[in-house]
Simulated assay, not measured.
Amino acid sequence: MGEKRVITVLGATGSQGGSVVRAIAADPTSGFVARAVTRNKGKAEELLALGIEVVEADLDDEASLRRAFDGAHGAFVVTNWWEPPTADSVWTSRTEREQGQAGNAARAAAATGLRHVIWSTLADTRPYLPDAPRQEAGYTVPHADGKAEANAFFLDAGVPTTFVTAPMYYESLFTFNAPRRAEDGTIVLAMPIGSAQVVSGTVDDIGRTVHAIFGRGDTLVGRTVPIASDLCAGEDFAAGIAEALGEPVRYVPVDPAALAHSGMPDAGEVANMFQYFINAEKDLTQIDFDWLRDLNPGLQPFGTWASANRDRFRALSL
């Protein structure tokens, strides 16, 4: 086999970027090798110990991105809207910062001649939420809408790009969407998705799918690939958790609007996001799973994943 092609992975110690690094490292015969980009020195040591090249770069600094992309075949680009700008940041909002970072990445990719970029984006929610309260920068779901607009940076720069959209993570069932023990002793799963099926998946499937897209060469350039492991309604999540725990779990739908007044951080943003899942269900769930499984045969249906993670559910101390 010839020299391996380098894939620069941004956010290499985060959820999405970390899964991409793991997927590339787990397949030494693929012809690709990961170059991990991170600012987290502690986690960088862990990657170095695994024999993975680690470089330091900052999405706020285009010149550093050019250095990270130099000599690479491709890159996985992901931004983190949820990370607030620092006190000395030139950006005035998280949305402005995220779009500025996407622009930096697109220009750096064009300048260094990357052959294939995979940009982790999301859909514009505004057509599905015409009457929803506006949030930061006038968007309904800023962390999605801002990314959707940022797609244009890659297109306008002429960068060969595949666009991927991440699912609602199964892993949120250990945190934000975790089940709880009710006063009557039963386990309740309360989620603000009504009766809708939601595009869902495990973080690991993001990495494996992205790795497979790079493996397809330029055949998927210009395409948008929805990364999904399963389509799940609240009852499906409850059934999978019940099987993992060995006792019944009752699903209780919550009105997303109630979240807006909950006092939680970014309450309006999160409430609109879940309302979008409900309003856009018909369009979001039009996914060709046969095609996705051909791309990534290891896609994990929720029930299978829940059973494999039964110890993590039991660790919730319900």
Rank of each mutant, 00 (worst) to 15 (best):
A110G: 01
P142V: 10
P127R: 01
V252H: 07
A36I: 03
F153L: 04
G14P: 08
D294C: 13
L189N: 07
R134S: 12
I241Q: 06
Q275W: 08
F302N: 00
E53Y: 04
W91C: 05
A244L: 03
N151R: 14
W81P: 08
A49T: 02
M168E: 15
I24Q: 14
D88S: 11
M168Y: 11
P84F: 06
A123C: 14
W91K: 12
N279M: 12
G246Q: 03
V141P: 03
P192N: 01
L231G: 05
A178E: 15
G17N: 04
G217K: 05
G217I: 01
A68W: 09
V33E: 15
A150C: 11
A110E: 00
V77S: 09
A49D: 14
L299W: 03
V141N: 05
E243K: 11
I118T: 04
D61K: 13
D311E: 14
R67M: 02
A258R: 10
V55K: 14
N80A: 11
M191F: 07
E269Q: 06
F76D: 00
Y251R: 02
E45R: 11
W91I: 06
T186W: 06
S15G: 08
T92M: 12
Y139Q: 10
D266V: 09
R107I: 03
G234Q: 04
V21F: 12
R66Y: 07
V164T: 12
T95K: 06
T209P: 15
A190N: 09
M1F: 11
V199S: 07
R312I: 10
G185K: 04
Q135N: 09
A110R: 02
K282C: 09
T79S: 11
A152C: 10
G14S: 03
